[in-house]
Design a protein around this nucleic acid. Structure first.
Length: 499
RNA sequence: GGGUCGAUAGCUCAGUCGGUAGAGCAGCGGACUUUUAAUCCGUUGGUCGGGAGUUCGAGCCUCCCUCGACCUACCA
Protein backbone atom coordinates (compact mmCIF):
# COMPACT_ATOMS: atom_id res chain seq x y z
CA UNK A 1 0.00 0.00 0.00
CA UNK A 2 1.84 3.09 -1.15
CA UNK A 3 0.88 6.72 -0.72
CA UNK A 4 2.10 9.75 -2.61
CA UNK A 5 4.65 10.34 0.14
CA UNK A 6 6.37 7.01 -0.34
CA UNK A 7 9.01 6.38 -2.97
CA UNK A 8 7.80 4.24 -5.83
CA UNK A 9 8.39 0.58 -5.17
CA UNK A 10 8.75 -1.85 -7.96
CA UNK A 11 6.55 -4.70 -7.05
CA UNK A 12 4.62 -7.65 -8.28
CA UNK A 13 2.25 -10.21 -6.94
CA UNK A 14 4.93 -12.38 -5.37
CA UNK A 15 6.57 -9.48 -3.55
CA UNK A 16 3.18 -8.23 -2.37
CA UNK A 17 2.36 -11.62 -0.90
CA UNK A 18 5.68 -11.76 0.88
CA UNK A 19 5.20 -8.26 2.26
CA UNK A 20 1.96 -9.55 3.72
CA UNK A 21 3.81 -12.43 5.37
CA UNK A 22 6.37 -9.98 6.76
CA UNK A 23 3.63 -7.73 8.15
CA UNK A 24 2.26 -10.76 9.97
CA UNK A 25 5.71 -11.51 11.39
CA UNK A 26 5.98 -7.94 12.66
CA UNK A 27 2.66 -8.31 14.45
CA UNK A 28 3.78 -11.51 16.14
CA UNK A 29 7.03 -10.09 17.56
CA UNK A 30 10.52 -9.33 16.34
CA UNK A 31 10.48 -9.83 12.58
CA UNK A 32 14.26 -9.67 12.16
CA UNK A 33 15.65 -11.41 15.25
CA UNK A 34 19.36 -11.49 15.98
CA UNK A 35 19.52 -13.85 18.93
CA UNK A 36 20.12 -17.09 17.06
CA UNK A 37 23.73 -18.32 17.17
CA UNK A 38 24.79 -20.81 14.54
CA UNK A 39 27.20 -23.48 15.75
CA UNK A 40 27.69 -25.72 12.71
CA UNK A 41 28.46 -25.19 9.04
CA UNK A 42 26.84 -27.43 6.47
CA UNK A 43 30.10 -28.22 4.73
CA UNK A 44 31.81 -29.23 7.98
CA UNK A 45 28.92 -31.52 8.90
CA UNK A 46 29.01 -33.16 5.48
CA UNK A 47 32.73 -33.80 5.82
CA UNK A 48 32.61 -35.01 9.40
CA UNK A 49 29.41 -37.04 9.37
CA UNK A 50 28.59 -37.62 5.71
CA UNK A 51 30.22 -41.02 5.71
CA UNK A 52 28.52 -42.31 8.87
CA UNK A 53 25.86 -44.95 8.47
CA UNK A 54 22.32 -44.63 9.70
CA UNK A 55 22.84 -46.79 12.76
CA UNK A 56 25.88 -44.86 14.02
CA UNK A 57 23.95 -41.61 13.89
CA UNK A 58 21.06 -43.23 15.76
CA UNK A 59 23.16 -44.82 18.50
CA UNK A 60 25.26 -41.71 19.16
CA UNK A 61 23.04 -38.69 18.37
CA UNK A 62 24.80 -35.57 17.06
CA UNK A 63 23.08 -32.33 18.05
CA UNK A 64 23.60 -29.51 15.58
CA UNK A 65 22.63 -25.85 15.21
CA UNK A 66 22.60 -24.67 11.63
CA UNK A 67 21.44 -21.62 9.74
CA UNK A 68 21.29 -20.56 6.13
CA UNK A 69 19.20 -19.61 3.16
CA UNK A 70 16.44 -22.00 2.08
CA UNK A 71 17.19 -23.01 -1.51
CA UNK A 72 14.77 -25.91 -1.98
CA UNK A 73 11.52 -26.81 -0.25
CA UNK A 74 9.43 -29.95 -0.45
CA UNK A 75 6.24 -30.08 1.56
CA UNK A 76 4.41 -33.41 1.97
CA UNK A 77 1.50 -32.82 4.32
CA UNK A 78 2.67 -33.73 7.79
CA UNK A 79 6.41 -33.70 7.04
CA UNK A 80 8.66 -31.58 4.84
CA UNK A 81 12.18 -31.32 3.53
CA UNK A 82 14.17 -28.16 2.91
CA UNK A 83 17.72 -27.58 1.73
CA UNK A 84 19.55 -24.69 3.32
CA UNK A 85 22.77 -23.16 2.06
CA UNK A 86 25.42 -21.46 4.13
CA UNK A 87 28.90 -20.21 3.31
CA UNK A 88 30.30 -23.72 3.50
CA UNK A 89 27.74 -25.73 1.61
CA UNK A 90 24.28 -27.20 1.86
CA UNK A 91 22.42 -29.49 4.21
CA UNK A 92 18.91 -30.89 4.22
CA UNK A 93 16.41 -30.22 6.99
CA UNK A 94 13.59 -32.61 7.88
CA UNK A 95 10.65 -30.82 9.49
CA UNK A 96 7.70 -32.86 10.72
CA UNK A 97 4.68 -32.57 12.99
CA UNK A 98 6.19 -35.34 15.13
CA UNK A 99 9.41 -33.45 15.91
CA UNK A 100 8.34 -29.80 16.04
CA UNK A 101 4.61 -29.97 16.65
CA UNK A 102 2.02 -29.03 14.09
CA UNK A 103 2.19 -25.28 14.67
CA UNK A 104 5.87 -24.94 13.72
CA UNK A 105 5.50 -27.19 10.73
CA UNK A 106 2.43 -25.33 9.54
CA UNK A 107 4.31 -22.05 9.79
CA UNK A 108 7.19 -23.58 7.85
CA UNK A 109 4.84 -24.41 4.99
CA UNK A 110 4.44 -20.69 4.41
CA UNK A 111 8.16 -19.95 4.48
CA UNK A 112 9.54 -19.14 1.04
CA UNK A 113 12.56 -20.30 -0.87
CA UNK A 114 15.11 -17.55 -0.22
CA UNK A 115 14.17 -17.08 3.44
CA UNK A 116 16.96 -17.41 5.99
CA UNK A 117 16.30 -20.05 8.61
CA UNK A 118 17.89 -21.24 11.82
CA UNK A 119 17.38 -24.82 12.99
CA UNK A 120 18.36 -27.10 15.85
CA UNK A 121 18.13 -30.84 15.70
CA UNK A 122 19.98 -34.14 15.40
CA UNK A 123 21.71 -35.58 12.40
CA UNK A 124 20.23 -38.62 10.67
CA UNK A 125 20.29 -40.27 7.31
CA UNK A 126 17.25 -40.55 5.10
CA UNK A 127 16.44 -43.82 3.42
CA UNK A 128 18.23 -42.60 0.33
CA UNK A 129 21.29 -41.95 2.47
CA UNK A 130 21.36 -38.16 2.56
CA UNK A 131 22.72 -36.58 5.71
CA UNK A 132 19.93 -34.46 7.17
CA UNK A 133 18.91 -32.58 10.30
CA UNK A 134 15.82 -33.88 12.10
CA UNK A 135 14.63 -30.45 13.18
CA UNK A 136 13.35 -29.93 16.72
CA UNK A 137 13.45 -26.11 16.71
CA UNK A 138 12.99 -23.96 13.65
CA UNK A 139 13.05 -20.18 13.28
CA UNK A 140 12.63 -17.77 10.43
CA UNK A 141 15.54 -15.35 10.89
CA UNK A 142 15.17 -13.17 7.80
CA UNK A 143 12.18 -12.95 5.51
CA UNK A 144 13.12 -12.60 1.83
CA UNK A 145 10.73 -10.31 -0.01
CA UNK A 146 12.07 -11.00 -3.47
CA UNK A 147 11.92 -14.41 -5.09
CA UNK A 148 15.13 -16.14 -6.11
CA UNK A 149 15.71 -17.07 -9.74
CA UNK A 150 14.27 -20.34 -10.92
CA UNK A 151 15.80 -23.18 -8.97
CA UNK A 152 17.03 -25.30 -11.85
CA UNK A 153 18.28 -22.83 -14.45
CA UNK A 154 19.35 -20.22 -11.92
CA UNK A 155 20.39 -16.78 -13.07
CA UNK A 156 21.98 -16.81 -16.50
CA UNK A 157 21.48 -13.26 -17.73
CA UNK A 158 24.99 -11.77 -17.74
CA UNK A 159 23.84 -8.24 -17.07
CA UNK A 160 21.89 -9.23 -13.98
CA UNK A 161 24.74 -11.42 -12.76
CA UNK A 162 27.09 -8.43 -12.85
CA UNK A 163 24.66 -5.80 -11.62
CA UNK A 164 23.06 -7.94 -8.90
CA UNK A 165 26.09 -9.92 -7.88
CA UNK A 166 24.43 -10.78 -4.58
CA UNK A 167 21.86 -12.85 -6.45
CA UNK A 168 24.52 -14.40 -8.64
CA UNK A 169 26.45 -15.43 -5.53
CA UNK A 170 23.37 -16.95 -3.91
CA UNK A 171 22.39 -19.14 -6.82
CA UNK A 172 25.59 -19.83 -8.77
CA UNK A 173 28.13 -21.98 -7.00
CA UNK A 174 30.63 -21.37 -9.80
CA UNK A 175 30.58 -17.68 -9.04
CA UNK A 176 31.30 -18.29 -5.38
CA UNK A 177 34.16 -20.56 -6.40
CA UNK A 178 35.71 -17.92 -8.66
CA UNK A 179 35.93 -15.44 -5.82
CA UNK A 180 37.23 -18.06 -3.42
CA UNK A 181 40.00 -18.84 -5.89
CA UNK A 182 40.68 -15.14 -6.29
CA UNK A 183 41.04 -14.68 -2.53
CA UNK A 184 43.25 -17.74 -2.19
CA UNK A 185 45.45 -16.71 -5.11
CA UNK A 186 46.07 -13.28 -3.61
CA UNK A 187 46.75 -14.92 -0.27
CA UNK A 188 49.22 -17.33 -1.89
CA UNK A 189 51.04 -14.46 -3.63
CA UNK A 190 51.23 -12.55 -0.38
CA UNK A 191 52.67 -15.56 1.44
CA UNK A 192 55.12 -16.21 -1.38
CA UNK A 193 56.56 -12.71 -1.15
CA UNK A 194 56.42 -12.36 2.63
CA UNK A 195 58.24 -15.69 2.97
CA UNK A 196 61.02 -14.20 0.84
CA UNK A 197 61.44 -11.20 3.10
CA UNK A 198 59.22 -8.74 1.23
CA UNK A 199 57.44 -5.95 3.08
CA UNK A 200 53.87 -5.19 2.05
CA UNK A 201 53.18 -1.47 1.74
CA UNK A 202 50.47 0.92 0.65
CA UNK A 203 51.23 3.97 -1.45
CA UNK A 204 49.00 6.81 -2.63
CA UNK A 205 45.95 6.08 -4.75
CA UNK A 206 45.54 9.85 -5.25
CA UNK A 207 48.61 11.31 -6.84
CA UNK A 208 49.49 14.87 -7.86
CA UNK A 209 51.49 13.48 -10.78
CA UNK A 210 50.24 10.19 -12.24
CA UNK A 211 53.23 8.02 -13.07
CA UNK A 212 54.57 4.54 -13.55
CA UNK A 213 52.71 3.61 -16.72
CA UNK A 214 51.57 4.91 -20.08
CA UNK A 215 47.83 5.46 -19.66
CA UNK A 216 45.13 8.12 -19.39
CA UNK A 217 44.27 8.83 -15.76
CA UNK A 218 41.07 9.77 -13.97
CA UNK A 219 41.20 13.33 -12.68
CA UNK A 220 39.71 14.46 -9.39
CA UNK A 221 39.96 17.48 -7.14
CA UNK A 222 40.69 18.04 -3.47
CA UNK A 223 38.58 20.91 -2.16
CA UNK A 224 40.51 21.91 0.98
CA UNK A 225 43.82 21.88 -0.84
CA UNK A 226 42.21 23.25 -4.00
CA UNK A 227 44.39 20.86 -5.89
CA UNK A 228 44.00 18.63 -8.90
CA UNK A 229 44.72 14.98 -8.13
CA UNK A 230 44.84 11.88 -10.28
CA UNK A 231 43.72 8.38 -9.39
CA UNK A 232 46.86 6.38 -9.78
CA UNK A 233 47.62 4.47 -12.95
CA UNK A 234 50.43 2.58 -11.16
CA UNK A 235 52.27 2.64 -7.82
CA UNK A 236 55.68 2.15 -9.44
CA UNK A 237 57.36 5.49 -8.75
CA UNK A 238 56.32 5.46 -5.09
CA UNK A 239 57.52 1.91 -4.57
CA UNK A 240 60.93 2.75 -6.00
CA UNK A 241 61.11 5.78 -3.72
CA UNK A 242 60.73 3.25 -0.89
CA UNK A 243 63.63 1.21 -2.23
CA UNK A 244 65.68 4.42 -2.22
CA UNK A 245 64.61 4.74 1.42
CA UNK A 246 66.09 1.35 2.22
CA UNK A 247 63.00 -0.89 1.99
CA UNK A 248 64.89 -3.24 -0.27
CA UNK A 249 62.07 -5.71 -0.92
CA UNK A 250 58.62 -4.20 -1.14
CA UNK A 251 55.33 -5.13 -2.72
CA UNK A 252 51.83 -3.74 -3.03
CA UNK A 253 48.61 -5.41 -4.12
CA UNK A 254 46.07 -2.74 -4.83
CA UNK A 255 43.87 -1.00 -7.34
CA UNK A 256 45.00 0.94 -10.38
CA UNK A 257 42.67 3.20 -12.37
CA UNK A 258 42.88 3.86 -16.07
CA UNK A 259 40.51 6.06 -18.00
CA UNK A 260 40.42 3.89 -21.07
CA UNK A 261 38.16 1.46 -22.85
CA UNK A 262 36.15 -1.32 -21.21
CA UNK A 263 36.34 -4.82 -22.64
CA UNK A 264 36.46 -8.46 -21.63
CA UNK A 265 40.08 -7.79 -20.63
CA UNK A 266 39.80 -4.23 -19.28
CA UNK A 267 38.02 -2.75 -16.28
CA UNK A 268 38.58 0.91 -15.34
CA UNK A 269 39.78 -0.18 -11.92
CA UNK A 270 41.82 -3.32 -11.71
CA UNK A 271 44.12 -4.97 -9.22
CA UNK A 272 47.84 -5.01 -9.70
CA UNK A 273 50.68 -6.64 -7.84
CA UNK A 274 53.90 -4.67 -8.04
CA UNK A 275 57.08 -5.81 -6.32
CA UNK A 276 60.65 -4.53 -6.21
CA UNK A 277 63.83 -6.18 -5.03
CA UNK A 278 67.19 -4.46 -4.72
CA UNK A 279 70.37 -6.11 -6.05
CA UNK A 280 68.49 -8.22 -8.62
CA UNK A 281 67.87 -7.92 -12.35
CA UNK A 282 65.22 -8.86 -14.88
CA UNK A 283 66.63 -12.33 -15.46
CA UNK A 284 66.13 -13.08 -11.77
CA UNK A 285 62.58 -11.76 -12.02
CA UNK A 286 61.68 -14.13 -14.82
CA UNK A 287 62.80 -17.10 -12.78
CA UNK A 288 61.02 -15.78 -9.70
CA UNK A 289 57.83 -15.27 -11.74
CA UNK A 290 57.86 -18.85 -12.96
CA UNK A 291 58.30 -20.08 -9.42
CA UNK A 292 55.57 -17.81 -8.10
CA UNK A 293 52.97 -18.80 -10.71
CA UNK A 294 53.72 -22.48 -10.20
CA UNK A 295 53.44 -22.04 -6.45
CA UNK A 296 50.16 -20.14 -6.65
CA UNK A 297 48.56 -22.60 -9.07
CA UNK A 298 49.65 -25.54 -6.98
CA UNK A 299 48.36 -24.00 -3.76
CA UNK A 300 45.07 -22.77 -5.19
CA UNK A 301 44.21 -25.44 -7.77
CA UNK A 302 46.41 -28.31 -6.68
CA UNK A 303 47.99 -28.54 -10.13
CA UNK A 304 50.31 -26.60 -12.41
CA UNK A 305 48.43 -27.65 -15.53
CA UNK A 306 45.62 -25.15 -15.79
CA UNK A 307 42.66 -25.60 -18.14
CA UNK A 308 41.79 -22.36 -19.91
CA UNK A 309 39.11 -21.92 -22.58
CA UNK A 310 39.86 -25.23 -24.25
CA UNK A 311 43.62 -25.06 -23.78
CA UNK A 312 45.78 -26.59 -21.10
CA UNK A 313 48.26 -24.04 -19.79
CA UNK A 314 51.36 -25.81 -18.53
CA UNK A 315 53.10 -23.85 -15.81
CA UNK A 316 55.35 -26.73 -14.78
CA UNK A 317 58.07 -26.24 -17.43
CA UNK A 318 60.49 -23.31 -17.74
CA UNK A 319 58.89 -20.56 -19.82
CA UNK A 320 60.66 -19.81 -23.14
CA UNK A 321 62.41 -16.42 -23.27
CA UNK A 322 62.26 -14.92 -26.77
CA UNK A 323 62.82 -11.53 -28.29
CA UNK A 324 59.91 -10.08 -30.23
CA UNK A 325 61.76 -10.92 -33.48
CA UNK A 326 62.39 -14.50 -32.40
CA UNK A 327 58.74 -14.91 -31.42
CA UNK A 328 57.56 -13.53 -34.77
CA UNK A 329 59.77 -16.01 -36.59
CA UNK A 330 58.74 -18.92 -34.40
CA UNK A 331 55.00 -18.41 -34.81
CA UNK A 332 54.84 -17.11 -38.38
CA UNK A 333 56.16 -18.15 -41.79
CA UNK A 334 58.25 -16.02 -44.09
CA UNK A 335 59.88 -13.47 -41.80
CA UNK A 336 63.62 -13.55 -42.50
CA UNK A 337 66.28 -11.89 -40.39
CA UNK A 338 67.02 -9.52 -43.26
CA UNK A 339 63.37 -8.54 -43.70
CA UNK A 340 62.81 -7.92 -39.97
CA UNK A 341 66.00 -5.83 -39.80
CA UNK A 342 64.76 -3.62 -42.64
CA UNK A 343 62.77 -0.66 -41.42
CA UNK A 344 60.89 -0.09 -44.67
CA UNK A 345 60.04 -3.79 -45.04
CA UNK A 346 58.61 -3.90 -41.52
CA UNK A 347 56.53 -0.76 -42.15
CA UNK A 348 55.24 -2.22 -45.43
CA UNK A 349 54.16 -5.35 -43.62
CA UNK A 350 52.44 -3.37 -40.86
CA UNK A 351 50.56 -1.41 -43.51
CA UNK A 352 49.57 -4.59 -45.31
CA UNK A 353 48.27 -6.05 -42.02
CA UNK A 354 46.45 -2.78 -41.25
CA UNK A 355 48.22 -2.83 -37.89
CA UNK A 356 48.62 0.25 -35.73
CA UNK A 357 52.14 1.65 -35.28
CA UNK A 358 53.93 4.93 -34.83
CA UNK A 359 55.77 5.82 -38.04
CA UNK A 360 58.56 7.59 -36.18
CA UNK A 361 59.28 4.60 -33.95
CA UNK A 362 62.71 2.98 -33.99
CA UNK A 363 63.15 -0.37 -35.70
CA UNK A 364 62.68 -2.05 -32.31
CA UNK A 365 59.39 -0.25 -31.76
CA UNK A 366 58.15 -1.24 -35.21
CA UNK A 367 59.18 -4.84 -34.61
CA UNK A 368 57.18 -4.73 -31.38
CA UNK A 369 54.12 -3.47 -33.26
CA UNK A 370 54.56 -6.30 -35.73
CA UNK A 371 54.84 -8.77 -32.83
CA UNK A 372 51.60 -7.47 -31.36
CA UNK A 373 49.85 -7.74 -34.70
CA UNK A 374 51.04 -11.20 -35.65
CA UNK A 375 52.17 -13.17 -32.65
CA UNK A 376 50.78 -12.00 -29.32
CA UNK A 377 47.54 -13.97 -29.47
CA UNK A 378 49.43 -17.11 -30.49
CA UNK A 379 51.35 -17.19 -27.21
CA UNK A 380 49.04 -19.58 -25.40
CA UNK A 381 51.69 -21.30 -23.31
CA UNK A 382 53.63 -19.03 -20.93
CA UNK A 383 56.28 -17.12 -22.87
CA UNK A 384 58.58 -14.27 -21.87
CA UNK A 385 59.19 -11.64 -24.53
CA UNK A 386 62.45 -9.81 -23.75
CA UNK A 387 64.50 -6.80 -24.84
CA UNK A 388 62.02 -3.97 -25.29
CA UNK A 389 63.07 -0.80 -27.10
CA UNK A 390 64.09 2.01 -24.76
CA UNK A 391 61.60 4.47 -26.25
CA UNK A 392 58.71 2.23 -25.13
CA UNK A 393 60.20 1.71 -21.67
CA UNK A 394 61.01 5.06 -20.07
CA UNK A 395 61.48 3.60 -16.58
CA UNK A 396 63.62 0.59 -17.51
CA UNK A 397 67.38 0.20 -17.43
CA UNK A 398 69.21 0.15 -20.75
CA UNK A 399 71.12 -2.90 -21.85
CA UNK A 400 74.86 -2.31 -21.32
CA UNK A 401 75.73 -3.83 -24.69
CA UNK A 402 72.81 -2.37 -26.68
CA UNK A 403 71.65 0.97 -25.24
CA UNK A 404 68.68 1.16 -27.63
CA UNK A 405 66.99 -1.71 -25.81
CA UNK A 406 66.12 -2.21 -22.15
CA UNK A 407 66.44 -5.10 -19.73
CA UNK A 408 62.72 -5.69 -19.79
CA UNK A 409 60.30 -8.56 -20.32
CA UNK A 410 56.60 -9.15 -20.62
CA UNK A 411 55.01 -12.49 -19.80
CA UNK A 412 52.30 -13.72 -22.12
CA UNK A 413 49.85 -16.49 -21.25
CA UNK A 414 46.74 -17.41 -23.24
CA UNK A 415 47.53 -14.63 -25.70
CA UNK A 416 47.47 -11.89 -23.07
CA UNK A 417 50.03 -9.90 -21.19
CA UNK A 418 50.06 -11.11 -17.60
CA UNK A 419 53.24 -9.53 -16.25
CA UNK A 420 55.72 -6.80 -17.09
CA UNK A 421 59.10 -6.48 -15.42
CA UNK A 422 62.50 -4.96 -15.81
CA UNK A 423 65.78 -3.99 -14.31
CA UNK A 424 64.98 -0.53 -13.00
CA UNK A 425 66.50 2.60 -14.42
CA UNK A 426 68.50 4.05 -11.51
CA UNK A 427 70.57 6.60 -13.45
CA UNK A 428 68.92 9.91 -12.47
CA UNK A 429 70.32 11.79 -15.45
CA UNK A 430 69.09 9.22 -17.95
CA UNK A 431 65.72 9.18 -16.16
CA UNK A 432 65.47 12.97 -16.39
CA UNK A 433 66.25 12.82 -20.11
CA UNK A 434 63.65 10.11 -20.67
CA UNK A 435 61.00 12.08 -18.79
CA UNK A 436 61.83 15.06 -21.02
CA UNK A 437 61.28 12.88 -24.07
CA UNK A 438 57.88 11.78 -22.66
CA UNK A 439 56.89 15.38 -22.03
CA UNK A 440 57.76 16.17 -25.63
CA UNK A 441 55.41 13.39 -26.77
CA UNK A 442 52.68 14.58 -24.39
CA UNK A 443 53.00 18.09 -25.81
CA UNK A 444 52.69 16.55 -29.26
CA UNK A 445 49.30 15.15 -28.27
CA UNK A 446 50.03 11.71 -26.80
CA UNK A 447 47.58 11.46 -23.88
CA UNK A 448 49.33 8.37 -22.55
CA UNK A 449 52.81 9.86 -22.40
CA UNK A 450 54.27 10.34 -18.93
CA UNK A 451 54.58 13.49 -16.86
CA UNK A 452 57.93 14.79 -15.65
CA UNK A 453 58.19 13.80 -11.98
CA UNK A 454 60.88 16.00 -10.48
CA UNK A 455 60.58 14.54 -7.00
CA UNK A 456 61.11 11.07 -8.39
CA UNK A 457 64.28 12.21 -10.15
CA UNK A 458 65.38 13.83 -6.89
CA UNK A 459 64.85 10.47 -5.14
CA UNK A 460 67.01 8.76 -7.75
CA UNK A 461 69.68 11.38 -7.10
CA UNK A 462 69.95 10.04 -3.56
CA UNK A 463 70.75 6.67 -5.11
CA UNK A 464 68.45 3.80 -6.03
CA UNK A 465 70.38 0.57 -5.62
CA UNK A 466 70.39 -1.69 -8.68
CA UNK A 467 66.86 -3.05 -8.52
CA UNK A 468 64.47 -5.34 -10.36
CA UNK A 469 60.74 -4.62 -10.41
CA UNK A 470 57.63 -6.21 -11.83
CA UNK A 471 53.89 -5.85 -12.11
CA UNK A 472 51.41 -8.70 -12.41
CA UNK A 473 47.79 -8.15 -13.38
CA UNK A 474 45.89 -9.98 -10.66
CA UNK A 475 42.55 -9.98 -12.47
CA UNK A 476 44.03 -11.57 -15.57
CA UNK A 477 45.86 -14.11 -13.48
CA UNK A 478 42.60 -14.98 -11.73
CA UNK A 479 40.86 -15.26 -15.12
CA UNK A 480 43.46 -17.85 -15.99
CA UNK A 481 43.12 -19.75 -12.72
CA UNK A 482 39.30 -19.80 -12.91
CA UNK A 483 38.93 -20.41 -16.65
CA UNK A 484 36.98 -17.16 -16.94
CA UNK A 485 36.55 -15.62 -20.40
CA UNK A 486 35.86 -12.07 -19.15
CA UNK A 487 37.55 -9.85 -16.59
CA UNK A 488 34.03 -9.03 -15.35
CA UNK A 489 33.74 -12.61 -14.17
CA UNK A 490 36.59 -12.13 -11.68
CA UNK A 491 35.64 -8.66 -10.40
CA UNK A 492 32.77 -8.71 -7.90
CA UNK A 493 31.27 -5.43 -9.07
CA UNK A 494 32.56 -4.70 -12.57
CA UNK A 495 32.02 -1.26 -14.02
CA UNK A 496 28.73 -1.05 -15.89
CA UNK A 497 27.00 1.74 -17.70
CA UNK A 498 24.56 3.63 -15.45
CA UNK A 499 20.93 2.61 -15.76
C1' G B 1 34.84 4.37 -31.39
C1' G B 2 33.23 0.38 -35.29
C1' G B 3 30.56 -4.34 -36.23
C1' U B 4 27.23 -8.61 -34.96
C1' C B 5 23.45 -10.46 -31.90
C1' G B 6 19.93 -9.77 -28.14
C1' A B 7 15.77 -7.58 -24.36
C1' U B 8 8.37 -11.42 -23.92
C1' A B 9 5.43 -13.21 -16.37
C1' G B 10 9.73 -12.95 -10.35
C1' C B 11 13.30 -16.79 -13.11
C1' U B 12 14.33 -20.06 -17.65
C1' C B 13 12.29 -19.75 -22.35
C1' A B 14 8.47 -20.58 -26.70
C1' G B 15 5.54 -17.40 -29.78
C1' U B 16 4.37 -20.09 -37.16
C1' C B 17 2.26 -15.96 -42.51
C1' G B 18 0.87 -9.43 -39.02
C1' G B 19 -5.17 -11.70 -36.53
C1' U B 20 -7.71 -12.48 -28.53
C1' A B 21 -0.21 -13.42 -24.80
C1' G B 22 1.97 -19.20 -23.94
C1' A B 23 4.86 -23.27 -21.11
C1' G B 24 7.92 -24.94 -17.02
C1' C B 25 9.59 -23.28 -12.33
C1' A B 26 8.23 -19.82 -8.42
C1' G B 27 3.47 -17.95 -5.97
C1' C B 28 -1.68 -18.96 -4.09
C1' G B 29 -5.57 -23.04 -2.64
C1' G B 30 -6.00 -28.41 -1.94
C1' A B 31 -3.93 -33.90 -1.29
C1' C B 32 0.38 -36.32 0.59
C1' U B 33 4.98 -38.46 7.33
C1' U B 34 11.89 -40.12 4.07
C1' U B 35 11.61 -36.07 -0.38
C1' U B 36 15.99 -35.02 -3.93
C1' A B 37 14.56 -29.81 -9.79
C1' A B 38 9.41 -34.26 -4.96
C1' U B 39 4.63 -35.67 -7.12
C1' C B 40 -0.76 -34.93 -8.21
C1' C B 41 -5.33 -31.49 -8.83
C1' G B 42 -6.92 -26.41 -9.28
C1' U B 43 -5.42 -21.33 -9.96
C1' U B 44 -3.40 -15.88 -9.88
C1' G B 45 0.25 -13.22 -12.47
C1' G B 46 2.06 -9.35 -18.78
C1' U B 47 3.58 -1.27 -20.07
C1' C B 48 6.06 -8.05 -25.08
C1' G B 49 12.96 -2.63 -22.97
C1' G B 50 11.11 2.87 -24.35
C1' G B 51 9.16 6.11 -28.28
C1' A B 52 7.33 7.10 -33.16
C1' G B 53 5.56 5.12 -37.81
C1' U B 54 3.13 1.58 -41.54
C1' U B 55 -1.59 -1.18 -41.15
C1' C B 56 -8.52 -2.35 -40.36
C1' G B 57 -5.14 -4.82 -36.88
C1' A B 58 1.98 -4.99 -34.54
C1' G B 59 5.38 -9.25 -29.58
C1' C B 60 6.24 -9.91 -35.07
C1' C B 61 7.36 -4.96 -40.31
C1' U B 62 10.16 0.28 -40.55
C1' C B 63 12.84 4.27 -37.96
C1' C B 64 14.89 6.47 -33.46
C1' C B 65 16.45 5.76 -28.40
C1' U B 66 18.10 2.89 -23.85
C1' C B 67 20.64 -1.25 -21.90
C1' G B 68 23.49 -5.75 -22.41
C1' A B 69 26.58 -9.79 -24.56
C1' C B 70 30.26 -10.99 -28.05
C1' C B 71 33.96 -9.48 -31.73
C1' U B 72 37.19 -5.46 -32.96
C1' A B 73 40.33 -0.93 -31.73
C1' C B 74 43.45 1.34 -27.35
C1' C B 75 45.53 -0.92 -23.22
C1' A B 76 47.20 -4.28 -18.28
Amino acid sequence: MTTDNNPPQDTNQIIEERRGKLAELRQNGVAFPNDFRRKDLAGDLQIRYGARVKEELESTPVNVTVAGRMMLKRVMGKASFATIQDSGGRIQLYVSNDDTGEAVHSAFKHYDVGDILGAKGVLFKTKTGELSVRVSELRLLTKALRPLPEKFHGLTDQEQRYRQRYVDLIVNEDTRRVFEVRSKAIQAIREFLVNRGYLEVETPMMQPIPGGAAARPFITHHNALDMQLYLRIAPELYLKRLVVGGLEKVFEINRNFRNEGISTRHNPEFTMLEFYEAYQDYQYLMTLTETMLRDVAQKVLGTTRVPYQGHEIDLSQPFPRLTAVQAIQKYNQGYTDAMLANREAVIDTLKRLEASYKPKDSLGGLQLSLFEATTETALIQPTFIVDYPAEASPLARRSDSRPEITERFELYIAGREIANGFSELNDPEDQAARFMEQVKQKDAGDHEAMHYDADYVRALEYGLPPTAGEGIGIDRLVMLLTDSPSIRDVILFPQMRGV
